[in-house]
């Protein structure tokens, strides 16, 4: 019974969640956190940071965690399945719709605009990631931001190894993690 309830709750979250897993956190807070509910604020904060500090999509991580706390193994399975089930249906339908109408002129017009938007968002993603890795602390007008030497170093190494030496992304990620584990505790 708990499993079915969890599955449906996370289906609902998935449908309310536009633009990625971080949207999930306010939804979870409303449902599970507070007096008389499953989690205290501290416990939930801890859960979110573990989700961010383990590999994998933050949404999956938090769903698995909350599901487990609520209903053990079956709970975690139900919550995770609930979070991705609507996506399987909706994104699947959208793609088969696009494939079926590939040659229509109006769809080419839609995709022409959508691709330009997506290209811009990828460039924007560079800014977001640079803000999390190259800079440290909050950005504020009129204040020189703090720069992380290790962050700049690893970003540059990763860029050069990928663009110039065609290293595989898997190795780049492993090497970046290793350099970070050594240098960040030493020089920040």
């Amino acid at each position: 019974m708990i499993a079915i309830h969890l599955f449906l709750t996370f289906c609902k979250f998935s449908l309310l969640c536009f633009g990625g897993g971080y949207m999930l956190i306010p939804l979870l807070t409303a449902e599970f956190v507070g007096e008389g509910k499953l989690l205290t604020v501290e416990r939930f904060g801890n859960l979110v940071s573990i989700s961010q500090l383990t590999p994998g999509p933050v949404g999956i991580n938090t769903a698995t965690f909350t599901g487990f706390l609520q209903g053990g193994f079956r709970g975690s399975l139900a919550a995770t399945a609930g979070l991705v089930f609507p996506t399987l249906i909706l994104a699947g339908l959208a793609i088969s719709f696009i494939n079926a109408n590939k040659d229509k002129k109006w769809l080419q017009g839609i995709l022409y605009g959508a691709r330009l938007g997506a290209a811009g968002l990828i460039i924007f993603a560079v800014v977001i990631f640079a803000r999390m890795s190259v800079l440290t602390g909050e950005l504020q007008w009129g204040k020189v931001p703090q720069i992380s030497i290790t962050g700049i170093l690893i970003t540059a190494i990763s860029f050069v190894l990928t663009a110039k030496f065609k290293w595989k992304t898997t190795w780049i990620i492993l090497v970046s993690g290793a350099i970070g584990a050594v240098l960040v505790p030493l020089i920040g």
Partner: peptide, 30 residues
């Protein structure tokens, strides 16, 4: 509680590595 400095360091490192990777992808896409 995730407060091991090496663990945090490795994750900061991966984030920086991903920044470089996305920069390459963005350049090619653009």
């Amino acid at each position: 509680s995730p407060e091991n400095p090496y663990w945090l360091g490795a994750f900061a490192g991966i984030r920086a590595g991903v920044t470089g990777l996305i920069a390459v992808t963005a350049w090619k896409t653009a």
